[in-house]
Simulated scan of single mutants.
Amino acid sequence: MAERGARARRLPRAGTLIRFAAFAVLVLFLAMPESFAPVFAPLTTNGAPAIYDRAPLIDLTLAHLGTVAVASLAATVVAVGLAVGVTRPAGADFLPLSRSIVNIGQTFPPVAVLALAVPLFGFGERPTLFALFLYGLLPIFENTLTGLTRLPPAVLDAADGMGMTARQRLLKVELPLALPVILEGVKISTVIGLSTATIGSTVAAKGLGEVIIAGLLSGNMAFVVQGGLVVATLAVLLYDSLGALERRVARRTGRRTG
């Protein structure tokens, strides 16, 4: 039993070290990409460059993360607001309509949403933001709905017994207790958005998709691999970071997300 416990403690430590190493390599690559040229050189042909050089990789990464952050924040505000509204007695009848709204992004592929958004917003970052916003609504809405509708009745009764108003109960009891489940939805939505944002480069949005598309158009697999690796590493690190936050909040509230 003691040996099993020691092994269980070593596993999280090893995972932390691996994540830290991945983060360190990613930062080093973005800061000094040319130093990694020998790694990607075997993937090139006819003397093509091994490292994408049409724009600084760190600038493209920051732009990519910025787009995802803005879209995820907007999706969180709208989805949580809708879920809160339909869990109130006055808004219960609007649940089917709200579900239809948040399902729009999942009904159409992101590329189709981008194509429809370009005539409205033009080329650039705005159609990408719109597509990511629609695509990110559903996980956050459904998780918020789950978190708010599965609260312990005894806790809600206690809040009512203390004389709390509906607003006070929502802000001081319901949302704090539902927060771990809400964060789980935000985590899923954000990671999906991070990966989906690569297609934004098809409508001239600045981001890591630019590296991948340039590689596909020129037949340079080095560009494709390095762009894909950066996006994948960011997705894993972001998922782990938001997961750690979710677990910390869950421990504080005493509620489990899964």
Score class of each variant (00 low, 15 high):
Gly124Lys: 05
Gly227Lys: 01
Ala197Arg: 13
Gly85Ser: 12
Met1Lys: 07
Ala205His: 09
Phe94Arg: 04
Thr202Arg: 02
Leu73Ile: 11
Val70Asn: 09
Leu65Thr: 01
Pro56Lys: 10
Ala232Glu: 09
Gly163Asp: 10
Ile101Tyr: 10
Val186Pro: 04
Val203Gly: 07
Gly105Phe: 07
Ile140Cys: 01
Thr253Ile: 11
Ala6Val: 05
Thr146Leu: 14
Ser189Ala: 15
Arg248Asp: 01
Ala204Asp: 02
Ile199Ala: 07
Phe29Ser: 07
Gly81Thr: 07
Leu95Thr: 12
Phe133Met: 15
Phe94Asp: 10
Leu28Ser: 05
Val111Arg: 07
Ala178Val: 10
Pro12Lys: 14
Glu3Thr: 15
Arg9Tyr: 06
Thr87Met: 05
Ala197Ile: 00
Val173Tyr: 00
Pro153Lys: 05
Leu170Met: 11
Thr253Gly: 01
Glu142Val: 15
Pro56Phe: 08
Leu62Val: 14
Leu242Lys: 14
Ile51Pro: 12
Gly47Asp: 12
Leu194Cys: 04
Pro180Gly: 12
Ala75Phe: 00
Asn143Met: 08
Phe29Thr: 15
Thr67Trp: 12
Leu229Ala: 05
Asp240Ala: 14
Leu11Ile: 15
Ala214Gln: 03
Ile140Phe: 01
Val155Cys: 01
Thr61Asp: 08
Arg150Trp: 09
Glu34His: 15
Val111Phe: 03
Ala158His: 02
Ala14Phe: 12
Gly66Arg: 05
Ala37Lys: 14
Gly161Trp: 06
Gly193Tyr: 14
Pro127Gln: 04
Asp59His: 14
Ala222Asn: 10
Gly215Gln: 08
Arg255Phe: 09
Thr16Ile: 13
Val70Met: 08
Ala69Cys: 05
Ala115Trp: 00
Leu30Val: 00
His64Ser: 08
Ala158Ser: 05
Arg248Asn: 02
Gly147Trp: 00
Ala115Glu: 02
Met164Asn: 13
Ile188Leu: 02
Val78Tyr: 10
Arg252Tyr: 10
Leu242Tyr: 11
Val236Asp: 00
Val77Asp: 03
Gly66Ser: 03
Arg99Val: 09
Ser72Val: 04
Gly209Gln: 12
Thr196His: 02
Leu145Ile: 06
Leu97Ser: 08
Val68Glu: 15
Phe223Asn: 01
Gly122Asn: 02
Ile104Leu: 04
Leu116Cys: 06
Ser72Met: 11
Val68Asp: 15
Ser98Trp: 00
Arg150Phe: 12
Arg99Asn: 04
Gln168Asn: 01
Ala48Pro: 05
Val39Ala: 06
Thr87Arg: 09
Ala55Leu: 11
Arg10His: 13
Val191Asn: 02
Pro42Tyr: 14
Ala92Met: 03
Ala75Val: 06
Phe223His: 00
Val84Gln: 04
